[in-house]
Amino acid sequence: MSGAVDSWRVSLPCTRAEAEAIDAADDLAIDAVLMTTEEVEDDRERWRLDAYMEREPDAAALAAICALVPSASGTAPTVTALAEQDWVALSQEGLEPIREGRFVVHTSAHPTAAPEGGCALLIDAGRAFGTGHHATTSGCLAMLDGLAERSFARIIDVGTGTGVLAFAAAFLWPDATIVATDIDPAAVEVTRANAAANGIADLELLVADGALHDAITERGPYDLVIANILAGPLVSMAPELAAIAAPGAAIVLAGLLETQRGQVIEAFAACGCTLEAVDRRGDWTILRLAAGATRFVPATPPDPKGRDGWALDL
């Protein structure tokens, strides 16, 4: 290692659930900067906690950090002496700007001007998912860009994460009423902060489990429905999402693997929806469907089972 030691890093494996709990906590009473990172894409068990400290950690500090990740019990933390660096910039050095159609999504570490006639969105990595760097989110941006010539008056982004897709919709359809929802209150807080950072004022934010929350239905029906979540919840929520869609509405779905495409299409076909477009990106698939010509009414009340962790928006 070259240069004088400026700080120390303590690293431990953790799960996504532990990472979310750490990121959402207001005060953990630990004198360290805590960062959580997804080590294996979309693997809930393969995350990492890094704690950055100004002083070499003593036994008490190590014990406090280890207590944050019970899943790593029995694993010795890795302690690394670090040379002087800008750790905020370093943490985002791999997040180069993403360009999709009219959009460029960038972090504070990589400020980028908007393309001509397009929009630059500032989305820093943080407590919610959706920097635009995952194939599902970038694919949704491309799908929305392809709908730019259509007119939408009411739009909903279910499982908004960081809000990036809702922000893209606000750019493309500035006169539309746009609702962004998430099951996670922390994600809604992040979306609110990101909206302010991007100068987006007319956005309704809701914490909601599912799509038939009263606050959602009273603002519908929606002529554009966006849901970048996971395949299982998309299947179970198909009747709900179809129910809030206006006749003929565009429905953009993501968070599903190519191997899961058939079951998602089948679930929405049972609700009167037809497939219009597919965008495959590696193992991931983004779908655009059209709602039926008549408003869909679920035969039974929605089943909330299996919704834990449905917000993806990576």
Rank of each mutant, 00 (worst) to 15 (best):
P247V: 05
D308R: 14
T75M: 06
T80Y: 10
A249H: 01
V188N: 10
A64T: 07
A17C: 04
P115W: 00
S2Y: 05
P77A: 13
G117V: 09
S71Q: 06
A60S: 10
G139N: 10
I30L: 12
A109K: 00
V207I: 12
A109N: 00
T191C: 08
I30E: 11
L203M: 03
V179H: 09
Q85D: 14
A170M: 08
L205F: 07
E116K: 15
G210P: 02
D31R: 11
A193E: 15
R219A: 02
V33D: 15
A290G: 05
E266A: 15
K305F: 09
A299K: 13
L68S: 14
E204F: 10
I30R: 13
A60L: 04
C140M: 12
T78R: 11
A290T: 03
P111H: 13
V235T: 07
F171Q: 05
V105A: 02
A277H: 15
L95E: 14
G118W: 03
D283V: 14
A17V: 00
L253S: 09
A153V: 10
L314R: 00
V188F: 09
A24P: 08
Q92E: 14
G272Y: 04
C66S: 15
P57H: 15
P221W: 02
M1N: 10
A197K: 13
E149F: 09
C66F: 10
C119Y: 15
A114H: 14
L122F: 10
D157H: 06
R192L: 11
R48D: 06
V252P: 04
L230W: 03
H134I: 02
P77V: 14
W87D: 12
I183F: 01
I265Y: 00
H134K: 01
T131E: 01
A72M: 08
I22T: 09
L90W: 12
F129M: 04
V158I: 12
L82C: 07
P77S: 08
C140T: 14
E54Y: 07
A168I: 09
G130V: 03
A270V: 04
L144C: 05
T36Q: 12
R44N: 13
A148Y: 04
A293L: 11
D27K: 06
G118I: 00
A81W: 12
C273E: 05
L147F: 05
C14G: 01
E96S: 13
A196T: 10
L49S: 02
A25H: 08
G130T: 02
E100P: 07
A201I: 13
A83H: 13
G232S: 11
I226Y: 00
T37K: 13
D26N: 08
G255N: 01
